[in-house]
Design a protein around this nucleic acid. Structure first.
Length: 754
DNA sequence: TGTTAGAGCGCC
DNA sequence: AAAAGGCGCTCTAACA
């Protein structure tokens, strides 16, 4: 292995919320710094302008590129032939930021850690923060003194140009390699690094958006929202002029439905605290001076028969100048008089009688204008109110759904005038979205996605949105490859439960089985399967319902939910749920045993720390997966029933049950994504005719030219299903298949099984 | 004007 | 006996 540490400094223009975006028309690479293993100092190139900008060269003998947040650098030179050649000959990367996160078991404190905070942990130097100050002040990289920038990247002359970001990154890398070996994590890290290359490829390729389709859907949904909004208006009572009812306000909604006091503001008069009278402004007026020295407003004076001005009320006459320039004119004096009543914004309160009363368990943490708790106005609450005399439940829930879809996935303009919504991320030049796939942002080692989040696109059964994700090729095909029941299979692998593995091999329908294992029904698995299938059976609906309850039960159990909560979700009795849990544990005893082992391991070697937020001492512990992946757990403030027994803090059983499964699922997908990427590299993306473009926890999206789609589908399925080979890297032999379903279509909505 | 918390909800 | 896991985005309301 020969490594080369590499860092790129670019112009920092923001494009689609991405700082230093390679898609910003004005951005370019300002300098590269690098150091090849064994060099006694760093090298660099400085580009004087955008026409001088260049890619880095990667010598043939280099086998490893080392960087910090290296996806940033890779995106800038993803088309660099030298980088492509490097990957083709099997070159790998090491991203110190990502490794730091993995070495710490994805502990929250190590999410996206900075080079500055990481370097000192490995004997590195503090960064020159002069540069950061300049960047923060909005100075462009090209306007920073090149000498300063070079010092920053590769170290000062005094340091022999063997420091800076490059020197620090090298120190971190060498320390991390050592630590990773000690922990048995090297292989797991290599797998993650290829996964990082896979998501770099996906971000680079981006998603093609059918803007005509998007515009059509946007128009249609907006029209529907106007209609829903108009229907809702009929239910708004006559309100004070200044109180404009807002169906988006939870305060307004809760008070309208459950009764309550809404505070609003309007301009009104107010008492002067000094006088107790209503506060007024003062006015200056020219008054006539009367014979007793008092004054009178000029227009109040009337003329006497002799032509002199007099005060008609008192009969006093106005004084006149007897000499001087103004001789003969009435005497005047400037007088302060009370003016208009002053107003200011003040709180007013309007009481809604309410249509119905809320349950105590619907109370939120917020309060209305009178200090009473507001109630939940979530979809679940509204739908529970259908028969409570609230006349607008249906149209309100329709309105909320439309709002959600339009504002999150299309376009919306906030009160501050800012545009929001997924479509704001579309690059108008080619109608493509380059989303982020984040590797250092979850506690379970799963990926996350943002700007925009393309891991929460509404499903086909809920919305047509997925139709806007189309192929970049004429008559092209979108491909989605999903692992079936990934987390159940992972649970089988990790727990090694005999029955679970057997059921997975036999492709058992787990939801039907969970119905069958309940003694009270007295039916076999085969019988349940038949009843659920047989639409003509008189009890068909009943058995379907039982299967649905079992399905909800399955998911809830996977997350460690207790009997009470599961009962509330499924509509079953608590005792019934308890029986089902007992039956489940008897059927799959290996799961119980595994969960106990994880808990035991986590609690075996703990360190203590003070948590200022929760004002107490807590524990942290780790569990390591068979792949070598490390999982960090911390204890939390105890629940009330534990406090009653003197327990102050405890680890979360639900977290301990879930992280290993969720994390290993993520690890497998990222691993096979890495293999997919290697395959795509080997054939130059099918000669530029197929592109990896997204991954969502248990699936991968590919955009394919029609000519190669059959081959792409076959290859993707084969590679993704070779999870047994992937596990073998870690010395783990598995006995269950990881079946992958491949679907294709003209867009991500209209997908059909291959 | 900008930041933050809470509620709610989209996905796996 | 006893704990539904992980994300990111939009909006409102409160606060500085």
């Amino acid at each position: 292995m020969v490594y080369m540490v590499h860092d790129t400094e670019t112009q920092t223009g923001v494009f689609k919320k991405r700082k230093g975006s390679p898609w910003h028309p004005d951005n370019y690479i300002v300098m590269h710094g690098w150091k090849i293993q064994g060099d006694d100092k760093c090298s660099w190139t400085y580009c004087k302008d955008r026409y001088d900008a260049q890619w880095v060269d990667i010598p043939e003998h280099v086998t490893l590129l080392v960087g910090f947040n290296y996806k940033f650098d890779m995106l800038w030179q993803w088309a660099n032939p030298a980088l492509k050649a490097f990957f083709k000959r099997g070159g790998r990367i090491w991203d110190c930021q990502y490794v730091e996160y993995l070495l710490h078991g994805q502990d929250q404190r190590f999410h996206y850690c900075s080079l500055t905070e990481t370097a000192p942990r490995y004997g590195g130097t503090e960064k020159i923060d002069e540069i950061k100050v300049l960047w923060d002040a909005g100075v462009q990289t090209s306007d920073i003194n090149p000498d300063l920038l070079i010092d920053y990247t590769v170290g000062t002359l005094e340091e022999g140009r063997n420091g800076g970001d490059i020197g620090n990154t090298e120190k971190i890398f060498l320390g991390q390699i050592k630590r990773a070996k000690e922990l048995g994590m090297i292989k797991a890290i290599w797998s993650r690094m290829d996964g990082l290359c896979a998501t770099t490829e996906m971000e680079y390729n981006g998603l093609q958006i059918d803007m005509e389709e998007a515009a059509a859907q946007f128009r249609d949904l907006s029209a529907q929202r106007v209609e829903a909004s108009a229907s809702l208006e009929e239910f708004v009572p006559v309100l004070p002029e200044e109180l404009v009812f807002n169906w988006g306000s939870r305060v307004h909604k809760s008070c309208l439905i459950f009764g309550g006091v809404v505070k609003y503001r309007k301009q009104d008069t107010y008492p002067d605290p000094k006088t107790g009278e209503l506060a007024r402004s003062t006015l200056q007026q020219d008054h006539y001076v009367l014979s007793d020295g008092s004054t009178i407003q000029q227009d109040k004076a009337t003329q006497s028969p002799s032509g002199e001005l007099v005060d008609p009320e008192s009969g006093l006459s106005v004084l006149y100048y007897l000499s001087g320039k103004k001789k003969g004119e009435p005497k005047t004096k400037k007088v302060k008089v009370p003016g208009d009543y002053k107003t200011k914004y003040q709180d007013f309160y309007y009481t809604f009688p309410g249509y119905t009363r809320g349950y105590p368990h619907w109370e939120t943490k917020s309060f209305d204008g009178a200090g009473n708790p507001l109630y939940s106005t979530s979809g679940g609450t509204i739908s529970a109110l259908k028969h409570s005399g609230v006349p607008f439940c249906e149209v309100l829930s329709r309105y909320e759904d439309l709002n959600k879809e339009i504002n999150t996935y299309f376009l919306s303009r906030g009160k501050d005038g800012q545009l929001t919504g997924m479509l704001t991320a579309v690059d108008q030049r080619d109608n493509r979205i380059h989303h982020n796939l984040n590797h250092c942002a979850t506690v379970t080692s799963r990926l996350s996605s943002d700007n925009p989040n393309l891991q929460n696109v509404p499903r086909a059964d809920k919305s047509n949105l997925k139709r806007v994700f189309t192929s970049r090729f004429k008559d092209g095909t979108m491909v989605e490859a999903d692992y079936s029941q990934l987390e159940v299979v992972v649970q089988g692998v990790l727990t090694k439960d005999y029955n679970l593995l057997k059921d997975l091999r036999n492709k058992i329908d787990f939801h039907c089985k969970r119905v069958a294992i309940q003694p009270k029904y007295g039916v076999s698995y085969e019988e349940v399967l038949a009843l659920v299938k047989d639409e003509d059976h008189p009890d068909h609906a009943l058995w379907k319902k039982r299967r649905t309850a079992a399905k909800i039960f399955s998911f809830q159990r996977a997350y460690g939910a207790g009997a009470v909560l599961i009962a509330s979700f499924t509509g079953m009795e608590v005792d019934e749920v308890k029986e089902l849990i007992a039956a489940d544990e008897a059927t799959y005893p290996g799961i119980v045993k595994f969960n106990e082992e994880v808990e035991e391991r986590v609690k075996k070697d703990v360190t203590y720390f003070f948590d200022p937020t929760n004002q107490g001492t807590f524990r942290r512990g780790f569990w390591q997966a068979p792949t070598g992946c490390m999982y960090h757990f911390r204890s939390w403030p105890a629940q009330d029933w534990q406090r009653d027994r003197g327990i102050e803090e405890s680890f979360s059983p639900t977290e301990m049950k879930n992280y290993p499964i969720q994390g290993t699922g993520g690890e497998i997908v990222q691993g096979t994504c890495g293999w997919l990427w290697r395959h795509f590299v080997s054939n130059d993306n099918y000669g530029g005719r197929a592109f990896l473009c997204n991954t969502v926890h248990d699936c991968v999206w590919v955009d394919s030219h029609p000519d190669v789609v059959d081959q792409v589908c076959a290859d993707v399925k084969r590679i993704m299903e070779s999870v047994d080979d992937w596990f073998r890297q870690f010395g783990v032999e598995i006995t269950v298949p990881f079946p992958v379903e491949v679907e294709v279509g003209p867009n991500m909505l209209e997908l059909k099984h291959k």
